[in-house]
Amino acid sequence: MDWQAIWLSVRLAVSTTAILLALGLPIAYWLTFSPRRWKFLVEALVALPLVLPPTVLGFYLLLAMGPRSPLGALYAKLTGGMLPFSFQGLLLASVLYSFPFTVQPVAAAFAGVDRKLLEASWCLGVSRAATFRRVIVPLSLPGIATGAILSFAHTLGEFGVVLMVGGNISGVTRTVSISIYDSVQALNYAAASATSLFLLCVSFTVLALTYALQRRIWAVWPIN
């Protein structure tokens, strides 16, 4: 089993999930509560990675990150490094690729919070930001947990985008799925099957946990 690849994937998945929670919660809030008419465009944009082939997303990302693009040039100027074929580049790609997996469950949870509770909080003099933190987030914990778990699992198993953007550099961009592909190409079926089984078990456990959370088999807070 390629422990180095597993460790890299776990690091990537944890970082991606953390960044997605920080970005996804405000965006989910905006998508749920904004009265803007054109927000369907943002919704479509966020959901795009669900239907777009990973190679297409990876291709555009590669173009966007290249040293001749504004983003790539800016990054090179700031850090002196390059985004493609680096862990940072991989992280950026993973964040974009898993965006809908965080935003959609979280937005669904936000939409499920009784609007009167928010209005009650506002009328008590509590700001919108504090209401978000004290009412919306605690009442949406199952949805937020679902979003985090799905993003984590999705990043752990991603292949196409990684291949396009990160390539196959051991310890830098060689994730679990790339490692498996590599093993199969090299006809090393024993290594491929061990790593595959590991990924299968992790994915199943994570999904089982998610559905258990949603059905409140283990309530996040006790129901009196």
Partner: peptide, 15 residues
């Protein structure tokens, strides 16, 4: 905004 009016609101189902 409601925060600046200092008007307490009691909802029908108390919220």
């Amino acid at each position: 905004p409601p925060q600046q009016r200092r008007a307490g609101f009691l909802f029908q189902d108390y919220a």
